Every structure is written in C-alpha cells, then in structure tokens.
Amino acid sequence: MRDSNLPGPDLLKTILEPLLDDFQYWFARSRNFLETERLSFMSEQDQSDLLLRVKQAQEELNTAKMLFAATEGQVGIDMSTLMPWHQLVTECWNVAMRFRSQQTGWQKQDGI
C-alpha cells in the first residue's frame, strides 16, 4: 500500500518536471552569462567560483533529471537538494540585475 503522505507520480510529473526544466534553463543562461561577461563588481576569483557552482549544480540537475526519467517520474527530489539550486539561481539573478543596472548607468553617463 502506498504512503498517502507521498505525492503520486502524476503530481510529481506535473510539478517536478517543469521545475527541473526551469532550473536547467536558468543554469544554462547563468553559465553563458558568467562565461561571456566580465563583471567589474566581482573579483575574477568570485566570478570563477560562481561559475563553478553553476556548473556543479548543472551536473547535479542532469543526474536528478536522468533518475527522474529512468524511474518514469516515480522518484522525487528532496527539498535539501532543491533549496541550494533555488538560492544559486537567485544569486545569479541578483548578479545579472547588478550588471544590467551598471550597464544602464554607463549608458546614461555617456548620453545614450
């Protein structure tokens, strides 16, 4: 008999699959951003460390997605795994917003 406190496979597929896709999108976008832009407000080491954390999260995510697919949505992901990913995406958003804010500020100073 199934534990009624555990979500069913349909619920997992409905909620978890799009969430994993979102993480995949944001990690790829963050990785591209960190690999192609030089962030003047971060040291090269800090930027490199953030990029490394994004790459590691991508590997973890790929493993989770493979496990989820291999079990046909029968396996969930613990919140202790998802929360650091969420925090990392939020950190990357904040870095990107700061970068864009600086770019906008420079354009205004140059009369653009």
Rank of each mutant, 00 (worst) to 15 (best):
Q103W: 03
W26A: 06
T81I: 04
Q74W: 08
E44D: 08
E91C: 04
L39Q: 04
M42F: 13
S80T: 14
L88G: 11
D49S: 14
L51F: 10
D10Q: 14
L34V: 06
S80W: 12
A57S: 13
L6A: 10
L11P: 04
D22C: 08
K55A: 10
N94Y: 09
D46N: 12
N94R: 15
Q56L: 06
D78R: 13
P18I: 01
E60S: 14
T90Y: 09
L12A: 00
H86I: 11
A28Y: 12
C92R: 05
F33E: 08
I15D: 10
P84I: 01
L20F: 09
A69H: 15
L12H: 00
D3L: 12
K55R: 15
I77A: 02
A64G: 03
L52S: 14
F68G: 01
Q103V: 04
L19I: 00
Q103K: 14
L50N: 08
F68Y: 07
Q47P: 06
P18W: 06
P7W: 05
N62T: 13
S48V: 02
A64I: 14
S43D: 13
R29A: 12
Q74F: 07
V95A: 12
A96W: 03
P7L: 11
D10G: 09
M97K: 11
L6D: 09
I15M: 12
I15Q: 15
S30E: 01
V54D: 10
D110S: 01
S48R: 14
R31K: 15
F23A: 05
G105D: 06
Q56T: 08
L34N: 09
F41S: 03
E60W: 09
L6E: 07
S40P: 05
L50Y: 08
S30W: 03
R38W: 04
A69L: 05
Q74H: 14
T14V: 03
L20H: 08
L88D: 11
L11W: 09
L67E: 11
F33V: 07
W106P: 00
D49W: 07
E37W: 07
T104V: 07
L16G: 09
T71L: 04
E91I: 02
N32T: 14
T63M: 07
R2C: 00
L51S: 11
L11C: 06
D110P: 00
C92H: 06
L52T: 08
S4T: 10
L61N: 02
G105Q: 08
Q56F: 05
A57I: 02
Q24K: 07
F41V: 01
A57R: 02
P7Q: 03
L67W: 02
L51D: 11
Q103E: 11
M66P: 01
G73I: 00
D10H: 13
E72I: 01
L61W: 01
L34F: 12
M79K: 11
S30D: 05
N32A: 11
Y25S: 14
A64P: 02
M79T: 12
R53K: 15
D49I: 09
Q58F: 07
T36M: 05
D78G: 09
S101W: 07
R31H: 09
M1P: 10
K13H: 04
S30T: 07
P9Q: 02
G105H: 02
K65G: 00
W93G: 01
W106E: 07
G8L: 03
Q102I: 03
P7N: 04
T71Q: 05
D46C: 02
D3R: 13
G73Y: 00
I15A: 09
Q74D: 14
P7T: 08
Q102S: 12
Q47C: 04
T90D: 14
A96D: 01
